[in-house]
Simulated assay, not measured.
Amino acid sequence: MKNIVLTTLLLASLHVTASQADSNKLVWLMNDFPPFIDVSGSMPGRGIADELVRYLIPRMPEYQHEFEVASIARAHGLMEQGEQVCHPSLLMNEDRKRIMVFSDPVFFILTHRVLIRKDRLDRFSAYLMPDGSIDAKRLTHDPNLVTAITERRAYSPSINAALEDVADTRHILKAGVQFNSPFHQLMSGWIDYLFAYPVEYGWYRKQQNESSDVVMRTIPISGDPEFILGYVTCTKGLWGQKVIEQVNAAIKEAGPRPSWVQKTVDYTAPEEVERFEKAFERNSPFLP
């Protein structure tokens, strides 16, 4: 009888120890999405969100920080299953709020634009508004203009609404997890347009050393806000809430212009930097 009691206590102790180890492990899910997340080398990499994670790690020493390369779709799946994981850079939407806890705003980004080859601009004239912006709904409903989107990726309000409204999606291709693929497809003429942040296009140009002979144009989307905010997210629940509270506390100590904001500027397309700085000065989420 005594041996049974000792064995039971030992097993209970081991279970508590294992639970504590699990609660102290923080797995960062990293999808290939430069310039926000760079998985091309050791992690955290060279991206904007990587800079944030690099800032957070020494300020959250009680956690064993680990990294897993995972698509956005896999991140959704793991959080739906209740796994104790976090993602360093996601937009907020109702579907995600169902399974995720969100931090205070951490990323300030100029909102999406339509990226088009200059030599094909005439194909889009029917969808241009008087103010020079483009009607995303009418654009995405044109079956003769092909684009590519990433599965489970969130876009701006106007783009999300337009994509949800398309019944026949054969002209809207599902891109793989490799970030550069849609840009290569656009440059090569395999697709006609792309929804992307100015900072995405800026990163792509830097990686290509801006050596391409193809001239691109970025066009604002009608009805969209000037900027969009990004967040750290963790699986919804007590564990995720605790991690996010610690993330928020660390962000407040970063000051009015955290290091990852400058990295955003570094990667933004040069012609968009002035617009970013003016928008950030008016709307910065980091001001006290």
Rank of each mutant, 00 (worst) to 15 (best):
K2I: 10
V5D: 02
T8R: 03
L9K: 04
L11M: 13
A12H: 00
S13C: 14
T17A: 15
A18W: 03
A18N: 05
Q20T: 14
Q20S: 11
S23M: 05
L26C: 10
V27Y: 01
N31Q: 09
P34W: 01
P35Q: 04
I37Q: 10
D38W: 11
S40N: 10
S42Y: 07
G47C: 07
A49H: 08
V53E: 01
L56E: 03
E66G: 08
E68I: 09
E68K: 12
V69S: 11
A70E: 05
I72E: 04
I72S: 01
R74L: 10
M79K: 05
M79Y: 03
E83K: 15
C86P: 01
P88M: 07
P88W: 03
S89T: 08
D95V: 11
R96I: 04
K97E: 13
R98T: 11
R98P: 00
M100A: 06
F102M: 11
F102A: 12
D104S: 14
P105I: 10
F107P: 08
F108S: 05
L110C: 09
L115I: 15
K118Q: 15
K118R: 14
D119E: 15
R120Y: 03
Y127K: 03
M129R: 14
M129A: 13
P130D: 09
D131A: 06
K137N: 09
H141Y: 00
P143M: 06
V146P: 00
T150D: 01
R152D: 11
A154M: 07
P157C: 10
P157M: 10
I159L: 09
N160M: 15
D165L: 11
V166Q: 02
A167S: 10
H171A: 06
H171R: 07
G176E: 02
V177S: 08
Q178M: 06
F179V: 08
N180Q: 11
S181E: 14
P182N: 08
F183D: 02
L186W: 02
L186P: 02
M187R: 11
A196K: 00
A196W: 00
P198I: 12
G202I: 11
R205H: 04
R205E: 13
Q207C: 04
Q207M: 13
Q207D: 02
S211M: 09
R217D: 05
I221R: 03
E226I: 02
E226T: 08
F227I: 14
F227M: 10
C234N: 01
T235M: 03
K236S: 08
L238G: 07
G240M: 08
V247S: 04
N248E: 03
K252L: 11
G255T: 09
G255F: 06
P256D: 09
P256T: 13
P258N: 04
S259I: 13
V261W: 01
V261S: 01
K263I: 15
K263R: 15
D266S: 13
D266I: 08
A269D: 14
E271L: 10
E271T: 12
E277I: 13
R282G: 01
P285W: 04
F286K: 07
F286N: 07
F286E: 07
L287K: 12
